[in-house]
């Protein structure tokens, strides 16, 4: 399929990818967040209430916002919109639940980036990089995930990043291979790409 891509298409794509001005979002003022260069990225700092999204949407509520089993969001104070949080500030496949959980149902200030410009999903999602309880002075970096992972996986010490040592990941790869298609597909790929 890729062989059919013409030079003209490549050139057109490159032109479309030409530099453009950074779109400053309506929540960018005062943000100290790090820019990641992501799709549709906007710096965004705002205040709101940390919520268990299942509780917020469906009234299916538990103690402690699901205690880590549930996705979390922030109901923004200024417009009451539910901002769905996908990620914390760490750069290794880490979500934001562990960083939001201590603030369950509390008012917070957050700083991070809104991302996404999907053709179908019209809202943006959030990467939270800093958080503090509203009124507190110091910001906290959202980097609790790997600390919590170590606590949950005491026997998983070793070399390499957590995702190479995670028991749940290793179990799936051992069972179904890296492409999810079995060991034979992995072996074929290795032979073709050596």
């Amino acid at each position: 399929m890729l062989k059919k891509i013409s030079i003209a298409t490549l050139v057109s794509a490159s032109l479309l990818a030409a530099p453009s001005a950074f779109a400053e979002g309506e929540f960018a003022q005062g943000s100290k967040a790090k820019e990641w260069g992501l799709q549709g990225e906007e710096l965004a700092t705002f205040s709101g209430k940390v919520v268990d999204v299942l509780c917020e949407l469906a009234g299916d509520c538990t103690d402690q916002c699901g205690a880590g089993d549930r996705q979390m969001g922030i109901v923004r104070e200024s417009d009451k919109k539910l901002v769905f949080v996908l990620k914390n500030r760490q750069a290794a496949f880490n979500g934001a639940i562990d960083d939001l959980l201590p603030y369950c149902n509390k008012q917070v200030d957050v700083d991070g980036v809104l991302i996404g410009d999907d053709d179908v999903v019209t809202s943006k999602f959030y990467m939270v990089q800093f958080i503090r309880e509203t009124g507190a002075g110091e910001w906290n970096k959202t980097n609790l995930w790997t600390k919590r992972w170590k606590e949950k996986n005491p026997g998983s010490d070793g070399k390499g990043p957590w995702f190479r040592r995670d028991p749940r990941v290793k179990k799936q790869i051992a069972k179904n291979g890296h492409f999810g298609l079995g060991a034979a597909a992995d072996q074929k790929y290795i032979e073709e790409n050596e």
């Binding site: 530099p19 453009s20 950074f22 779109a23 820019e35 799709q39 990043p161 190479r164």
Partner: peptide, 23 residues
């Protein structure tokens, strides 16, 4: 082996320029 912030690169796609219209 990680996501790496690359702030020196360009930030906004063509689609994002029309974000306010889309919203």
């Amino acid at each position: 082996e990680s996501f790496v912030p690359m702030p020196s690169l360009v930030k906004t796609s063509l689609i994002a320029r029309f974000r306010s219209l889309s919203l």
